[in-house]
Design a protein around this nucleic acid. Structure first.
Lengths: 331, 331
DNA sequence: GTGAAAGCGCTAACAG
DNA sequence: CTGTTAGCGCTTTCAC
């Protein structure tokens, strides 16, 4: 019922000016101790909360951070969101999550909405595709790109993963077990990550003295469905004896197909996943995988939100690269 | 650099009043067509975005929804958050996620912060424990409780799960396989959900002619760690031949212990999980589990945000109950 | 140590 | 059809 409690409500209640209330509540020294105490007590009693809207409108900025992810079900993204959410709370920031489904239109829409609320920063996994640089400008928000990197005009920081060594190690691992028909499923070359991972695979194959057969390479917009699809083709074709996946979604998609077909990753088809969801360790005695340090990434992202950014992000649009490593299990 | 683009910027730029700009941009009819077009074009060119802060301050409310979950890693919560995020975007709402870690203090803090930004509603899994009804009042925000229900003064809606039948069915299933030492791990009776699930287990045991041995019942604040711990005790004790879990976190925790010990859920210890993460189907040929319709819950939650709520939530603090069902697999 | 005025971006309510 | 005024909650600036 009763209207929102503001500093004026309290001021009127106490028969003083709202300015005194403002000063007392924002901890300025020049307020009589008695007055200050009375104000603080009354504020608590009345359940006063400072209006974030008013603060924002005065130009004092918000404590809102946007997070744009393809989805939040994939354990990698979920973990990233989880640690970031925790970190943001510790910094008394709000985390607004928008799902892009790797769609540039949805991404642009989310960014526009984030601009409306004057988010201080946006952490995002850029969607594949060319972005039309119209109104999708970041407009004052710091932008931190994650995993993939898209060239942007006002380019902020980027948190990237160097998985080349791990992917080459995966090829070595499989080659060492006698596999010579090794397939690869990954994102398109258009994506910075897709390009690099494919290059690592190819280079790994060559060092192992193997020929990266193009019919065993599946490359398309990364998604769970795409991973399933590619795995099905490979499984049905019967040409590949091993699969390496180059993407979080792709890995889960491919694996779901393998599991549904009751293929054993120890006998029927060797598999190296990407990302390390908790259950990989429990499937068929353990799925080998490229492990990415999610928490490190998330903490770095949260940390970058605090660096006032002028020094770092504006002057030198720095990239932060984290190494991935291969975890060898039974597959 | 350049300051934020406002209606006044555009007005000055076009040499007209900012009111005309406001009218044109908010689609009011009484604006000359030419003027309107010019305004809209210029607004787009300048990259104008309406200030959500100003709107909020005028008392027109926000489009912000808060979501309070213990965490977002557990696949159940992740899926819930995912569908809700998608639904909110479709309704052009912002979803702010705060993690409570099932801690009342963190919960209260999150609610306070949500009040600052004048969130229109909060969807929350209430943390266990008694809440001090001080300033933690919802203050204008609609509150929708999820899974568990805590009696509240201004009680809003609640989305609950009726899992009694499924849990009794789980007992039947295990009893039918000859198990008579069936253990149960669940939340405390203090929790509405903990109470009900335990009652269902006990009642199931009795209908099966079995004695619910208190030393096989583990009851404590639900968490991954608690599930692990309880499972370890049960496994080490060697008394139980089967475990039923009564909680999303607990289930994953218990299962992690079972898997790490390389116990086979077909031979060594039968297991019925709670919630149905995708990978349950793939472990040891399939883990039986109590399945909860996450998406239904999430959609209902999103739907409730739109009902102006006055009719529904205020007058009749309605509970919406969704049935759970047992999925029998190999465990 | 306290108060009054002004302005942040926007729209409802009145003039013209 | 278009412009002026006022006020949402808050703090900065300038009085007293």
């Amino acid at each position: 019922m009763s209207k929102r409690v503001t500093i004026k409500t309290i001021a009127a209640d106490l028969g003083i000016s709202h300015m005194t209330v403002s000063r007392a509540l924002s901890g300025q020294p020049n307020v009589q101790k008695e007055t200050r105490d009375a104000i603080q007590r009354r504020a608590r009693e009345l359940g006063y909360v400072k209006s974030a809207a008013a603060t924002a409108m005065r130009g004092d900025g918000t404590r809102i951070v946007g997070l744009l992810l393809p989805n939040i079900i994939n354990e990698f993204y979920a973990r990233f969101a989880n640690t970031m959410a925790a970190a943001c709370q510790a910094q008394s920031q709000h985390l607004i999550i928008h799902l892009t489904d790797d769609d540039i239109a949805l991404e642009a829409q989310a960014i526009a909405r984030l601009r409306e609320v004057q988010a201080m920063a946006v952490v995002m996994v850029p969607a594949p595709g060319n972005v039309t640089h119209d109104g999708s400008d970041s407009g004052g928000m710091r932008v931190i790109q994650l995993i993939r990197k898209r060239p942007v005009p006002d380019g902020g920081a980027a948190l990237l993963v160097d998985d080349a060594a791990a992917i080459r190690a995966a090829v070595q691992h499989l080659a060492g077990q006698g596999h010579d028909q090794i397939a690869y499923i990954g994102g398109p070359r258009q994506l910075s990550s897709g390009r690099q991972r494919l290059a690592a695979f190819t280079s790994g194959m060559q060092s192992a003295g193997l020929d990266p057969r193009t019919d065993l390479i599946h490359e398309a917009a990364p998604s769970h469905a795409m991973g399933r699809q590619a795995a099905e083709t490979l499984l049905t074709g019967g040409l590949a004896t091993a699969i390496i996946s180059g993407g979080f979604e792709i890995s889960n998609g491919a694996l779901s197909m393998i599991m549904e077909r009751h293929s054993d990753t120890r006998r029927d088809i060797a598999f190296v996943g990407y990302g390390d969801p908790s259950f990989y360790a429990w499937l068929n005695g353990g799925i080998s995988t490229v492990h990415v340090a999610v928490d490190q990434l998330a903490h770095k992202a949260a940390e970058l939100l605090n660096d006032d950014g002028v020094a770092d992000a504006r002057d030198a649009p720095s990239d932060h690269v984290f190494p991935a490593r291969l975890i060898v299990r039974q597959s």
